[in-house]
Design a binder for these strands. Structure first.
Lengths: 193, 193
DNA sequence: TTGATTTCTTAACATACATCAATGCAGACG
DNA sequence: CGTCTGCATTGATGTATGTTAAGAAATCAA
């Protein structure tokens, strides 16, 4: 229980041993089954999920019922709907589990308290925000500047594990194209090998 | 000199009077002419720009020489290339002035020092990061889920002043379409009035 | 003012991607 | 074991957007 989070805090966030137990006491563990919903549109998101095992996704559903995947979160990733979490607005997005998953769950207040306890935690939290911005900006860059094929090549380069773990139509959804188009892109790439 | 930044810190960031002077001493003012470059690709971005007057843009140039605008920054906005500023990587992007502008300039170290002086400043800085994430995420959402027309309608709704101040081809570049397509979109919209 | 440059629009045509429909395949499950 | 369901692929066709080229309008510079 919480081993994954413990190791993460110790080895990546560099939280000092003296603070680890205190911080760990403040979070809880949640096990979810595949397809279980963790956030629905219209609700206010209160949680951040740390994925110890499994795979989550954050996505929107448009007027015509189509899903648009904003983000995947495999092991050792944090996932939340920050616009709702931080600003307290009802979420426009959904979160669910793509695999049976084991999560560590905490809220915004935890982040503030842990930041007061551990300066390393505070710094890492800022690192996460900055890193998130960097990724979103790069993604915008390829959405406005690159075609479907190069976006797909970039995706498999960046997230090879995820390609193996989710159906292709979800990758297509993340890339902003249809499953049929992605299938054709993949055929084109295969031809050149 | 620095009046705009002073009022912003006092009225929006809520920095206490006791801290204002000390913080203001640490920043400098820069006046730039239209078209002046503030960041080039390949350089490490050291600055954040606060726009007191004028208009900046952050953009990329692709292999074929086309510009892709990532962000505009009119009065009272902060602009920087955070991926480069925070992580110290060479920037993939450019920043220049679209109008004669008056800027307040500071660096990452300033942010840390001002955060130590004023907790209000620290909180506002986090607010800016969270807000930035929210905007980028919404933009990704419309890039993968909406067509050119609705992206344009959203843009003029969100940034009506900017539409008045930049050439339309730059709006097109921001939206990820060609100027010709934007022209057609605008004609379609006009027909329905 | 005048000429030069940039911007916007329009049209004809090209292309990337979407849509619709059918098929095949594989894992889930009775 | 067979049936069902979800997923991937393919082809035919439609549509949104890109490309190229030209001219009109606006802006800028001298």
């Amino acid at each position: 229980m919480k081993e994954g989070f413990y190791h993460y805090l110790r080895d990546r966030v560099f939280v000092r041993s003296a603070h680890l137990a205190e911080i760990l006491k403040m979070v809880s563990v949640k096990k979810v089954k595949k397809n279980e919903m963790l956030l629905m549109r219209g609700l206010i998101c209160r949680n951040v999920f740390f994925v110890e095992k499994g795979l989550l996704r954050l996505y929107a559903i448009d007027e015509s019922g189509k899903e648009h995947i904003i983000q995947f979160a495999p092991e050792n990733w944090f996932l939340s709907e920050r616009a709702s979490l931080y600003f307290g607005n009802p979420s426009e997005y959904f979160i669910d589990a793509l695999e049976d998953s084991s999560l560590v769950v905490f809220d915004q207040e935890f982040i503030e308290r842990a930041s007061d306890i551990s300066v390393e935690f505070r710094n890492y939290n800022e690192y996460l925000l900055q890193n998130h911005i960097r990724h979103l900006q790069n993604r915008i860059h390829s959405l406005i500047g690159a075609d479907a094929k190069s976006r797909y090549l970039k995706f498999i380069d960046l997230y090879p594990e995820i390609v193996q773990r989710v159906p292709q139509w979800m990758v297509a959804s993340y890339l902003g194209i249809t499953p049929e188009s992605l299938s054709r892109v993949r055929r084109d790439i295969a031809l050149f090998k």
